[in-house]
Design a protein around this nucleic acid. Structure first.
Length: 599
RNA sequence: GCCGAUGUAGCUCAGCUGGUCAGAGCUACUGAUUUGUAAUCAGUAGGUCGGGGGUUCGAAUCCCUCCAUCGGCUCCA
């Protein structure tokens, strides 16, 4: 008897009943049979060798499919468990799922410390076991039998899992000397795993509950080819090189000091230049949009944050208050309450609206990149009055309004429930750093609560008092985050307008230091940031150092240049660009900056 | 808060089974060299080995404690 198998391209093939997905793969091509890792049968991911008993939609999953990768990594977790059991007989296992980049297994070593130094021997053992190409064997088992099995093995974790499983749906998988309670699926045998790297060991609470004991979580990743592992490791190295903490220090952008305190950056001269350039751009943009600048103090009394309503929500992320004359003062964690006070003093009429205020103040909160996404955060109705201001009508109104704006402006976004601010919905720009950390860069927040708390009003056209709605904006987020993002995005190779130092003037020998300084003066007079490397070094060394410092332009000058009042231009990463008159170089730089800044 | 790692000269790191273990490279400084597109040579200087306490005849090294940094504590057989 035959069954009909429908493949993703909608072609239909007939096979004897009970054929496996592997049989299908073999019938299509030898290469496919070699690369296939698992099969999706009628939407369910299954082992390749399980017989198919009826007509089915079949997708053969390879390393190029997320589900194929996950199957491989899940099987790798079992392989790691086998290796661990070899060296640590009696260890207990909790769960070992595939994750974003690889897999982990949570392990109870019974008090023994397992540290990163122990990873290598496990890795080696895994490689040895992988070579044996042991099959992953599936076995269906009754619940009672399963309970007996894991009771005998004195395994409280698997018994805990079993307690939530239904009889008839329980399976064990065995490869080599290791058997685990597992729903599968798995790759056919351990030989598919060709490259192994155990990456990290960390603590993780059992069931993610800090009241529970802590298990040892071991992270790893595997590949079907050695070359893919090498590429992955190279990618990690590359990301590490972009880490803003490393580059920031290297380029003398910012530093931290134990005496100043954690999370309190000291912006060095190079960092200050970047901040000032960014603010200059932001100020210009805001001025064009009708914003007016204000300045407010770094402190405010507790009463203001009680009025605004921030204190209960932000207490954890604000520094503790300082007391003076019986009053509590807080370092400001946000500008908006101060700005509400200014609004009140302005006492506007509807003709004055909207009032647009902007400030680049220092706020205090306790606490690489190629992609970003607009995140529209909304509230969770069940949490009104707790996490959110209790005003369901305004929530609905403003959320609909913001959604409409996003759609009409053609801005792609993802909607995230239960992430709104306590006073209203918000739009964030989410980015991912080179080292994989997600954070919020810029934010726009609708606020229909705080203006009322401050008693803000304006006079409407009917000469009645009305409460305004406030929109909070943080176009740059914090300097730390924004500049951190820029560092990683550019890997420290800032565009000309942001580069702390734009031009290095490199005299061939000290005979030309005088001319170099003249050229520097011309640059300075033209608002170009430059320096002269007048060290007693050979030109090759000066160039090398300027390249390492990521200086966008180098001007090499010697006898020829001095005679003709020219400079020999070299561009960072691009090499020799020929000779220009000094004034032509100035024009070129100014034009380039202008072009970069005209968005 | 918890688990693990790390903290040695301005920077990157070696030394850490206790006794020529206080080192290297870069940087800085001095001198020689006067250099044409990614490292000239030589010399000099620089450190309470994160802070504090303890064990010992003797501690960078072992123990305790505190501080700071990094990774993790989300992806449920």
């Amino acid at each position: 008897m035959n069954i009909k198998i429908t493949l993703p391209d909608n072609s239909v093939r007939e096979y004897p009943k009970g054929s496996s997905a592997m049989d299908v793969a073999k019938s299509i091509s030898e290469g496919l049979a070699r690369n296939v890792l698992a099969a999706k049968v009628n939407g369910e991911v299954r082992d390749l060798n399980r017989p198919i008993e009826e007509d089915a939609q079949l997708t053969l999953l390879t390393w190029n499919d997320a589900e194929g990768k996950n199957t491989m990594w899940h099987s790798s977790a079992h392989l790691m468990a086998e290796a661990l059991e070899f060296y640590y007989p009696g260890v207990k296992f909790w769960v070992g799922p595939p994750v974003q980049n690889g897999f982990y297994y949570d392990v109870d070593f019974g008090g023994e410390v397992f540290s990163a130094d122990d990873l290598k021997k496990i890795e080696d053992k895994m490689a040895e076991l992988a070579k044996q190409s042991n099959a992953y064997v599936r076995k269906e088992i009754g619940k009672e039998e399963a309970i007996r099995y894991f009771t005998e093995r004195n395994d409280p974790y698997k018994l805990d899992l079993l307690s939530n499983l239904e009889d008839g749906s329980i399976t064990l998988y065995t490869q080599g000397n290791f058997t685990d309670l597992c729903r599968g699926p798995h790759i056919p045998n351990t030989g598919y795993i060709k490259a192994i790297k155990l990456t990290n060991v960390a603590g993780a609470y059992w069931k993610n509950d800090s009241n529970n004991p802590m298990l040892t979580r071991i992270y790893g990743i595997t590949f079907p080819k050695k070359s893919e592992l090498d590429a992955y490791l190279a990618m990690l190295e590359e990301a590490k090189k972009r880490d803003h903490r490393k580059i920031g220090k290297e380029m003398e952008i910012f530093t931290f000091d134990d005496d100043v305190g954690p999370g309190l950056p000291l912006w060095m001269p190079n960092g200050a230049v970047i901040i000032e350039e960014l603010e200059r751009l932001a100020k210009k943009t805001e001025a064009m949009a009708g914003y007016k600048r204000v300045r407010t103090p770094h402190l405010a009394k507790e009463s203001m944050y009680l009025t605004s309503g921030h204190l209960p929500y932000y207490a954890d992320s604000m520094y503790p208050p300082m007391e003076f004359d019986g009053e509590k003062y807080y370092l400001k964690a946000m500008n908006c309450p101060h700005h509400h006070k200014i609004f009140k003093e302005l006492n506007p009429s509807y003709r004055d609206l909207p009032i647009r205020l902007a400030e680049y103040g220092t706020c205090y909160r306790y606490f690489g990149i190629e992609k970003y996404v607009m995140r529209f955060s909304t509230h969770e109705p069940s949490k009104l009055g707790q996490k959110y201001v209790d005003n369901p009508v305004l929530w609905k109104e403003t959320e609909d309004m913001v959604r409409q704006v996003l759609i009409e402006s053609n801005i792609p976004y993802v909607e995230v429930p239960d992430e709104g601010a306590f006073y209203g919905p918000k739009i964030d720009v989410q980015v991912w750093s080179a080292i994989g950390r997600e954070f919020t860069l810029a934010t726009n927040q609708v606020d229909f609560a705080v203006p009322a708390r401050f008693g803000l009003t304006f006079r409407n056209a009917k000469n009645e008092m009305e409460t305004p709605i406030c929109i909070h904006r943080a176009p740059l987020g914090t300097h730390e985050r924004f500049i951190g993002f820029l560092i990683e995005h550019f890997a420290g190779n800032f565009p000309l307008w942001l580069a702390p130092e734009q031009v290095a003037i490199l005299p061939i020998s000290d005979k030309f230091n005088g001319y170099a300084k003249k050229v520097l003066q011309v640059l300075i007079n033209s608002d170009i940031r430059g320096l002269v490397d007048d060290r007693d070094e050979k030109i090759g060394k000066k160039i090398r150092d300027a390249e390492i410092k990521r200086l966008p332009y180098m001007l090499i000058i010697g006898e020829k240049e001095e005679q003709d009042f020219t400079v020999s231009v070299r561009q960072h990463g691009k090499g020799d660009q020929g000779t220009l008159k000094v004034q032509d170089f100035v024009d070129k730089i100014q034009a380039e900056v202008k072009e970069l800044l005209s968005v």
